[in-house]
Amino acid sequence: MGKRLFNYLVVTFNLLSFLFGAAVLGLGIWASIQSGGLRNIVDEVMFAGIYILIACGALVMLLAFFGCYASVAESKPAIVVYCTALLVAVGLEVVGCVILFAYYDASRNRLTDSYSTKYGIDDKVTKIWDDAQIKGKCCGREYPSDWDSSFYYRANKTYPDSCCVRNDSADILDLVRCYNGEHEFIYTQGCEGLLKLYYYAIAGTTIPAVMFQLISVAIIACLYQHIY
């Protein structure tokens, strides 16, 4: 293979790395914003993993440009810096994903504890769950029936108003039928589904991103061997 072909490959894989880095960055920001107050309930370490991936996404986007420069300029020092920095980013991405999955069960347990024992008692937790259920169009952890064992349901014999389906004007369609748990009038998806969505969306993007980054390092290392 000639140096020109290596240059083309480096630019191509850095473009792919840039795109996946942008996706990781965007999904990380989306997850941290869309989760609303849920991040104040679930294990905070879990969201540290998301913040690590946000930083890595931004770093990889910058390194993609630097990698193209190092390749076109055929600068050995620049290639060494690029490879080192990209490998550090890959390591941090792996750490971020490990944190996400390692603390998943802890996050689920904290979700359960917060709504079953604190909703309706702790104003902060109540507001967080109401915001999460309205914005996420979800109810309970996995199903609306999860509320049946909560302190709030035992005391009021109803589901929270935030579980009720709303129209475009944010008005509840039918409060009574919502309280009765009728599917057309109560959100049937659990809020844990939001956590799963964040996990799989981010991890599903980070894994191919890491793959393309490692390929970029391998190719530019081959280019390094052809520079005299």
Score class of each variant (00 low, 15 high):
Arg154Lys: 15
Tyr115Gln: 10
Lys135Glu: 14
Arg154Trp: 02
Ala155Gln: 10
Thr112Gly: 14
Cys139Ala: 04
Tyr152Ile: 00
Ile121Trp: 03
Ser149His: 11
Pro160Val: 00
Lys137Trp: 02
Thr126Val: 01
Asp146Trp: 09
Lys135Leu: 12
Ser145Pro: 01
Arg154Met: 12
Thr117Trp: 00
Asn156Ile: 02
Gly136Cys: 08
Lys127Val: 03
Ser114Ile: 04
Tyr159Lys: 02
Ala132Phe: 06
Arg141Thr: 09
Asp113Cys: 01
Thr158Ile: 05
Thr112Asn: 15
Ser114Trp: 05
Cys138Lys: 08
Lys127Leu: 07
Ser145Gln: 14
Lys127Glu: 12
Lys135Val: 03
Arg154Thr: 05
Gly136Phe: 12
Pro144Ala: 08
Glu142Phe: 13
Phe151Ile: 15
Pro144Val: 00
Trp147Gly: 10
Asp130Phe: 06
Ile134His: 02
Trp129Asn: 04
Ile134Cys: 01
Gln133Ser: 01
Asp146Val: 01
Asp122Ser: 02
Tyr143Ser: 06
Ile134Gln: 10
Trp147Leu: 08
Ser114His: 01
Ala155Leu: 13
Pro160Met: 01
Lys118Thr: 10
Gln133Asn: 00
Gly136Ser: 11
Thr158Arg: 11
Ile121Leu: 11
Arg110Trp: 04
Val125Arg: 01
Thr158Met: 07
Trp147Ala: 07
Ser150Arg: 08
Tyr153Trp: 15
Ile128Leu: 04
Lys137Ala: 10
Arg110Lys: 15
Ala132Met: 02
Gly120Ile: 00
Lys124Thr: 14
Gly136Trp: 11
Thr112Glu: 15
Arg154Asn: 15
Lys124Ser: 13
Lys127Tyr: 06
Arg154Cys: 04
Ser114Pro: 04
Tyr153Ser: 12
Lys127Asp: 10
Cys138Glu: 08
Arg141His: 10
Arg141Leu: 11
Thr158Tyr: 00
Ile128Cys: 03
Gly136Glu: 07
Ile134Leu: 06
Tyr153Phe: 15
Ala132Ser: 12
Asp131Met: 06
Lys127Phe: 05
Asn156Trp: 05
Ile128Val: 09
Phe151Met: 08
Asp123Ala: 15
Glu142Thr: 13
Glu142Lys: 14
Pro144Gly: 03
Tyr115Asp: 09
Phe151Glu: 11
Asp122Pro: 02
Lys157Glu: 07
Lys127His: 07
Asp146Asn: 14
Trp147Tyr: 07
Asp148Asn: 14
Asn156Met: 11
Cys139Ser: 01
Asp146Ile: 03
Tyr143Lys: 10
Asp148Glu: 10
Phe151Val: 13
Ser116Pro: 00
Glu142Leu: 07
Lys137Phe: 04
Lys137Cys: 07
Arg108Asp: 11
